[in-house]
């Protein structure tokens, strides 16, 4: 019982101290499932939501909104999934400049729904 309590306290402590950093972003790979992403990163997303984009209204995209910690500052960081597969991830400005217009649209739509 004492061991379980101690483990819970340690887990809570470690979770509260961890943050999503560039090293986490670098571990992500295209095609990863949401479960794989959650198992890979140090800290999970602050916000998870589904979006649809005007050019593909029948397709749903799941967005994970992370807070990226960068040496004293933080920045919004998004991961977009389609069919439970990681499609693209990055800062919102990276979504917007990508050559594929679908990624641009996902970035625009995600920013509308994101908690900023």
């Amino acid at each position: 019982m004492k061991t379980l309590l101690a483990m819970t306290v340690v887990t809570l402590f470690l979770t509260s101290c961890s943050s999503f950093e560039l090293s986490d972003a670098n571990k992500l790979q295209k095609g990863m499932t949401t479960e794989q992403v959650l198992n890979t990163v140090s800290k999970g997303p602050d916000n998870v939501f589904d979006i649809r984009i005007p050019s593909r209204p029948n397709v749903s995209y799941t967005i994970y909104q992370f807070t990226l910690k960068l040496g004293g500052i933080t920045a919004e960081y998004l991961a977009a999934f389609n069919d439970n597969k990681l499609l693209y991830w990055g800062h919102p400005y990276e979504f917007n400049r990508y050559p594929d217009p679908v990624i641009n649209e996902i970035g625009r739509e995600a920013l509308i729904h994101a908690k900023l």
Binding site: L68, L70, I73, A75, E76, H91, P92, Y93, N96, R97, N104, R108, L111, L116
Partner: peptide, 11 residues
């Protein structure tokens, strides 16, 4: 400018 503040940029 910051990573967040340039999120408005669009092609």
């Amino acid at each position: 400018v910051t990573y967040n503040s340039i999120g408005f940029l669009q092609k």
